[in-house]
């Protein structure tokens, strides 16, 4: 049998390897889809699924993403979209933390909420969805609530943490743990037509400033709820921040918060 690299070389199309070949290589050489993906990227080639990334994200950067680990806390409105976008982007390791099951009131906005998923754990449904999109991703579903006690285990080895939580108290706990563990945190929050995004690096006090005066665990969303489009846009802005942190590119929403008003179609930036 020819070596794996010879096998891949003989099946190159331009500098790309198709999904079919990637899958065939995995079964022939008894490796995971992820291991084959790393082999392809290491050799300077590109899995064909990423061809529309390439003028935005180079092949070398695609390898950086593949070698990255991101933890998403919450698999609801924000977390569902963030996980989907990170998997399509090609981030190699995703940890998804949520102890909840899908309920009917999630159907209006949560990407992973389907009728078939009602009553099932969000983290399990996320795992199936990600496997159906990008099996190169090593996906770790964790059916636990985020708490200080399990935080070190949940966040171990992650380059970035994404806030997909829906309570203020837990957000502040997550923020404090991320600072202790020196992991950047990409914050997002939504309420009706409105949302906010910010990126906190260790040493910044962004979330403390945002929620300094909040005595209640929930914001105005307790009255206004959330429609379908607000989580999608806020999650996409969060994913763009994660991508830039992992690649060390662009300008981040650091020490500032972007406030979105989709009713007036306004975006305001506040310096914190």
């Amino acid at each position: 049998m020819v070596s794996l690299s010879e096998f891949l070389l003989s099946r190159l199309e331009g500098d790309m390897i198709s999904w079919q070949v990637q899958r065939e290589a995995a079964s022939r050489y008894k490796q995971t889809i992820g291991q084959i993906e790393e082999e392809i990227l290491n050799a300077g080639f590109l899995p064909a699924r990423y061809q529309r990334n390439r003028k935005t994200i180079s092949a070398a950067e695609q390898l950086m993403l593949f070698r990255s680990r991101v933890t998403v806390i919450g698999c609801g409105g924000l977390g569902g979209y963030v996980l989907e976008e990170l998997a399509r982007l090609g981030v190699g390791q995703l940890v998804a933390v949520d102890h909840d099951v899908f309920e009917e009131h999630n159907l209006n906005r949560q990407l992973l909420a389907t009728i078939a998923a009602l009553g099932r754990f969000k983290a399990d449904v996320a795992a199936e969805r990600i496997a159906s999109i990008n099996p190169a991703v090593e996906f770790v579903p964790i059916k636990e609530a985020f708490a200080r006690e399990n935080s070190e285990r949940l966040l171990a080895g992650s380059q970035v943490v994404v806030d997909g939580l829906d309570t203020i108290g837990t957000r502040l706990k997550l923020s404090s743990v991320c600072k202790e563990l020196e992991i950047p945190l990409v914050h997002g929050a939504i309420c009706g037509w409105f949302g906010q995004v910010a990126t906190q690096f260790p040493g910044d006090d962004t979330l403390e400033k945002l929620y300094l005066r909040c005595t209640e665990d929930r914001g105005m969303e307790k009255i206004y709820g959330n429609p379908s489009f607000t989580p999608a846009i806020v999650a996409s802005l969060q994913t763009a921040e994660v991508c830039k942190i992992l690649l060390g590119r662009g300008s981040l929403l650091r020490k500032r918060v972007l406030c979105l008003n989709l009713l007036a179609m306004e975006m305001d930036e506040l310096q914190l």
Binding site: Y211, E221, C259
Partner: peptide
């Protein structure tokens, strides 16, 4: 609560010409 773009406490005394911006808590996910 921000006055002229700077975060200040609610006890802050406003001056002539100040711009006060007020944002509510947003916490959903």
């Amino acid at each position: 609560t921000m006055v002229n773009g700077v975060l200040v406490p609610v006890e802050h005394l406003l001056q002539d010409g100040d711009t006060l911006s007020i944002f509510p808590p947003v916490g959903g996910g």
